[in-house]
């Protein structure tokens, strides 16, 4: 794939956590390219650094060292407000536990990123309706999250993630809190979004769901490893 199609490029990305006198290397020299329209799964054992990587990709955290280029712009050292702005416009999040805000209706939850963007109410309404239609939840727009099943909540979360038409959807164990049936339904939804051109990066430890992706990145001990390395590390 050519350089001009790269949506995300990580060069020598490291993340070190400091607690008292202890240094924890969560990520060690990650090199990674994700193309536009690609569906990538990140997998690995617990504590391998995949959630930390996703946090940095989503500008929820900043790397200790290295370069992160998103949509041709270096974003590794932006200030908090610039990161918030890019998160709002370029990134859609799908969390394991949905993270819908209990005080807000389904519609208001989906509307939230657009509200932060300062979009006019009429346009917000149209976009939210469209997003909810896409995930099949338009009929529940006035409900509160507590009135929905887990699967329905995750679909609303997906609608919220895609309502702002972000460059990339970041999903952190999106099926982790769902039964297999609802999990499959959400994966089908992501697959459908991908077919529509969405770029998706999904963290999962479940190989069944990782198979939905075009490519799976394996992580171990804060590094990206290939399949052969996994075999030797597992041995």
């Amino acid at each position: 794939m050519s350089e001009q199609h790269a949506l995300i490029t990580l060069e020598g990305l490291t993340k070190v956590f400091y607690t008292d006198e202890v240094e924890t290397h969560a990520l060690s020299g990650i090199h990674l390219r994700i193309e536009k329209g690609e569906y990538v799964a990140i997998s690995g054992p617990s504590g391998c650094g995949k959630s930390t990587l996703l946090s940095i990709l989503g500008l929820l955290d900043s790397p200790t060292a290295g370069t992160y280029i998103l949509n041709s712009n270096p974003v590794q050292s932006l200030d908090l407000s610039q990161r918030a702005r890019i998160r709002n416009r370029e990134i859609g999040f799908i969390f394991q536990s949905f993270n819908l805000i209990g005080d807000l209706t389904v519609f208001e939850n989906v509307e939230l990123p657009l509200t932060y963007r300062g979009m006019a109410a009429s346009e917000r309404k149209a976009r939210c309706g469209e997003a909810l239609e896409k995930v099949g939840m338009a009929h529940r727009a006035k409900h509160l999250p507590s009135q929905l099943s887990g699967g329905q909540q995750q679909r609303v979360a997906v609608a919220r993630a895609l309502v702002g038409k972000p460059s990339v959807l970041l999903a952190d164990e999106p099926t982790g809190n769902l039964d297999s049936k609802n999990g499959e339904a959400v994966m089908d939804l992501l697959h459908e979004l991908h077919r529509g051109g969405a770029t998706i990066v999904m963290v999962t430890h479940d190989p069944r769901f990782a198979r939905h992706a075009d490519r799976t990145i394996h992580m171990f001990d804060g590094r990206v490893v290939d399949e052969s390395e996994i075999a030797s590390l597992s041995a």
């Binding site: 908090l80 990123p113 932060y116 919220r160």
Partner: peptide, 16 residues
């Protein structure tokens, strides 16, 4: 805390 983190992830600045 979770709600505030979510709002922040969705693009709310600290000022917001």
């Amino acid at each position: 805390a979770r709600e505030l983190s979510t709002r922040s992830a969705l693009g709310a600045s600290r000022l917001r």
